[in-house]
Design a protein around this nucleic acid. Structure first.
Length: 497
RNA sequence: GGCGGGUUCGUCUAGUCUGGUCCAGGACGCAUGGUUCUCAUCCAUGUAACACGGGUUCGAAUCCCGUACCCGCUACCA
């Protein structure tokens, strides 16, 4: 038995979502890659909630994020719900630590209070942009003496804390995925690291937390590349050890821009609700920007961990291909056919209830429910589609009598086909009313006619009211003799009217 | 605009480090055919790419230089 936090080595990675929305598909994939890396290396995976933005953060979203990550199959070793040696794991509960380092930076004059108003800064920014220059803070308050700043604050003046970004230097990041990336310091200004001693901002809080939590590898989205030199400088100023970085390519919408709401569903929960299987989604997400280098495509969580390596992650962004996801989900659904149909049946139930077919569905015993699933499973791309595909099992179908017509059959021919079918099936005893017997009877009759369609087509329509369905004989077997004959009679009556 | 990143079939990608086995392989999609009463599944076949221009070399998707295009960031958000 292993202790809860024992690890084979000291690699520690983290996922730090901010609860300002439901779990985003991109966040989920970043979490997945962190998880895979931790599992592959025997390291620890930490989940930390970045809720420093009080105005936008919401506990509801935190709940959604944890729930859906769990559902996907991603497990963390430390986090706000399970705790851990470096608790708390919610930034809003870590202000003491931030305050301590903020005071340290201020004391060492590596940071300073800035009293510029947002309005003044906005004007400054616009002026610089109009001049075609990069908008950077001019450093106006850098000159203010610490004691003067203290006086102004005592007098009630509101200020923010800026970090003295080192100048005339260059930062080189050795990205695990992209190789070396160099940034000249002239492109960075004295950025705000906290709104007050108790209100740290992202770039600062991240550095403190990663240090406090002993994080060794930061695996995050490509959109954070330009934050890296800022965090790097902060790490140096604080005397913390450097961490390794790996910037993941972005998930793109069909127009190749960062995937967002305007491209469709971005919340993982929505995919869950639409009837995607977690295993399929996880498999699909892992293959967005990574692959094992073989022809394998359908891989389990464990197989992916086994084959995973951070070096084989793609550098360029990947478009989220809904069609391929649908195909993969269909593959996973079909994998759950056969003997392990029970769990799938459970997943289907909520959709049946929502459609109002719960009672009708429960009139079938487990074997029949299972048979119904077997009949439609190969047509399902999402489990939500079960209802639409099997509806006729739960209610008498409504259809136009014209639908009964196969090719150029006359009404009389259709009626004859149906009544002959009725007679044939009526002759089979209840105990023998199986797919095989029914099919054999129908085929024998069909051989007398020029094509099978003239027997099977009207029967399918009579049974289902549709032009596409599973084989009529199999459907009839599930219905039983009584219901089958009843539906055929309805069709015959329709033709007579 | 500035800075950073990226570029192989429509899409996800293999191959690039260690030039030849690549007139570029797999998968999704699409098309056609087979199975079949229908749809789906399944099977088979096909479709389609090395961004562009130079250079190095006997030989370049792979090495070098330049160009183009796309994306990200540019907050007292994360």
């Amino acid at each position: 038995m292993t202790t809860k936090y024992s690890q084979q080595n000291s690699i520690r990675v983290r996922m730090a979502p901010s609860p300002t929305g439901r779990l985003h598909i991109g966040t989920a994939r970043t979490a997945l890659f962190n998880y895979l890396y931790a599992k592959k290396t025997g390291g620890a995976f930490v989940l930390r909630i970045e809720d420093t933005d009080v105005a936008r953060s919401n506990p509801e979203f935190e709940k959604d994020i944890l729930e859906n990550l769990k559902w996907l199959g991603i497990a963390w070793d430390e986090g706000p719900d399970v705790g851990g040696p470096y608790a708390p794991y919610r930034q809003s509960e870590r202000t003491a630590s931030y305050r301590q380092y903020l005071e340290k930076l201020l004391e060492e004059q590596a940071a300073y209070w800035c009293f510029c108003t947002p309005e003044a800064l906005e004007i400054e920014r616009q002026t610089m942009q109009a001049e075609g220059k990069a908008p950077r803070y001019a450093g106006t308050c850098r000159q203010i003496k610490p004691e003067d700043a203290e006086k102004r604050r005592d007098a009630g003046e509101r200020g923010v804390i800026r970090f003295k970004m080192p100048q005339n230097t260059a930062t080189r990041i050795d990205d695990l995925i992209r190789g070396p990336i160099v940034f000249g310091s002239e492109n960075f200004d004295d950025f705000v690291i906290a709104k007050s001693l108790d209100e740290p901002l992202y770039n600062f809080a991240v550095v403190i937390d990663d240090y406090d939590m002993q994080i060794t590898h930061v695996i995050r989205g490509e959109d954070h590349i330009t934050n890296t030199p800022k965090q790097y400088a902060l790490i140096d100023a604080l005397g913390f050890p450097h961490v390794a970085y790996a910037h993941l390519p972005l998930i793109l919408g069909p127009d190749r821009s960062k995937m967002s709401k305007r491209h469709g569903s971005v919340a993982l929960g929505e995919y869950r609700e639409q009837g995607y299987l977690p295993e399929a989604l996880l498999n699909f997400l892992a293959f967005l920007g990574w692959n094992p280098g073989t022809d394998e495509e359908i891989l389990s969580n464990d197989q992916i961990i086994e084959r995973f390596s951070i070096e084989s992650i793609q550098k360029s962004g990947a478009i989220f291909d809904q069609q391929k996801l649908d195909w993969m989900n269909g593959m996973y659904i079909r994998q759950q056919g056969g003997s392990k149909r029970g769990p799938l049946l459970e997943l289907i139930k909520p959709y049946i209830e929502r459609a109002g077919f719960a009672d009708a569905f429960n009139k079938y015993n487990f074997n029949d429910q299972s048979s119904i699933l077997a009949l439609v499973i190969e047509r399902m791309k999402k489990i939500s589609e079960f209802v639409e595909l099997s509806e006729f099992f739960f209610k008498t179908p409504e259809y136009d009598r014209e639908l009964l017509r196969w090719k150029n059959m006359t009404d009389e021919e259709i009626a004859k086909s149906l009544s002959e079918t009725q007679k044939l099936l009526g002759a089979i005893s209840d105990g023998n009313f199986t797919t095989e017997r029914i099919d054999a009877a129908l085929k024998t009759y069909a051989e007398h006619l020029k094509d099978k369609g003239s027997v099977f087509w009207p029967l399918r329509v009579a049974l289902t009211g549709r032009k596409a369905s599973p084989p009529p004989a199999a459907i009839a077997a599930v219905f039983g003799k009584l219901e089958t004959l009843k539906r055929i009679q309805i069709a015959i009556d329709k033709l007579a009217s």
